[in-house]
Computed example of a mutant assay.
Amino acid sequence: MRFRHAVAATLGALTLVLTMPTSAGAAVGAFSYQYDDMSRERITVELIDPPSGPCITLPEVADDFVPPAHTPRNATDGPATVYSGAGCTGRQFTLRAHTGHGSERLEVRSVIFH
């Protein structure tokens, strides 16, 4: 009798775990980058809880005729791969979770969160 209760409790717990809502594929935390606007003022932008998986082209620097963003900082709970081109093309560099960062020389136009 106890074995059946243990099996039922285990199956019930497993069902509960499998049906619990998840974070909908978001990297929890903030990702920031900087860019220089047309008047050469340095602007810092933060992406809060960005979606994991899809390529995100940074809108301020999407076009090739503007200088790319730089100085990315990854404070999300997962790694982020930054790309030198829009649409996650060009040179790439992966930033660690929580502490990953790049210098002012690292050109960024798009990013994917893993």
Score class of each variant (00 low, 15 high):
E104Q: 03
T10R: 10
G90F: 03
T10F: 15
N74D: 06
T81A: 09
A75G: 07
V82Q: 05
Y35G: 04
S103H: 01
S39T: 12
M38S: 13
Y83M: 03
G12M: 09
A26V: 13
A26L: 13
E107F: 03
S103K: 00
A8P: 04
E60K: 13
A80P: 06
R42M: 03
V7T: 14
I56D: 01
A75E: 13
S110I: 10
G87S: 07
P51W: 00
C55Q: 05
G100L: 02
V17I: 15
P72F: 03
S52Q: 14
M20D: 01
G102M: 02
I48A: 13
H70Q: 02
A27Y: 04
R40H: 05
D64V: 12
I43K: 15
G78A: 11
D36P: 00
F93G: 00
V66C: 04
R2F: 12
F93Y: 12
P72N: 08
I48E: 11
Q92C: 00
S84R: 08
Y83D: 02
T15E: 00
R109M: 03
P79D: 08
T71V: 00
L11W: 04
M20C: 14
T19A: 13
Y83N: 05
S103F: 00
A6Y: 12
M20S: 15
T44P: 02
E107K: 15
L18C: 12
L16M: 14
A6H: 13
D36C: 01
G25N: 07
C88W: 00
A9K: 09
Q34F: 00
A24S: 13
V66Q: 04
D36N: 11
G53H: 01
P72Q: 08
D37H: 06
P21Y: 07
A27D: 05
M20P: 00
T81N: 08
R73D: 00
G90Q: 09
R4C: 12
S84G: 15
G85T: 07
D77A: 09
H98V: 05
P79K: 02
A62I: 01
S32K: 11
P51V: 11
V82K: 05
G90M: 07
L11D: 07
R109E: 02
M1L: 10
L58C: 11
Q34R: 15
L18H: 06
R96N: 11
L14V: 15
F93S: 14
I56A: 09
G87I: 02
Q92K: 13
L58D: 08
D64Y: 10
M38I: 09
P50V: 05
E60G: 14
H101M: 07
A69Q: 08
L16F: 14
V61E: 03
T94H: 01
P79Q: 03
T71M: 02
T44V: 14
V45F: 03
D36W: 00
T10Y: 11
T57F: 02
A27E: 04
A80E: 03
C88R: 08
N74P: 08
F3D: 13
S110T: 12
R105F: 02
I48W: 03
R4W: 11
P51R: 13
E60F: 10
V66K: 06
V45W: 01
S23D: 15
A26H: 15
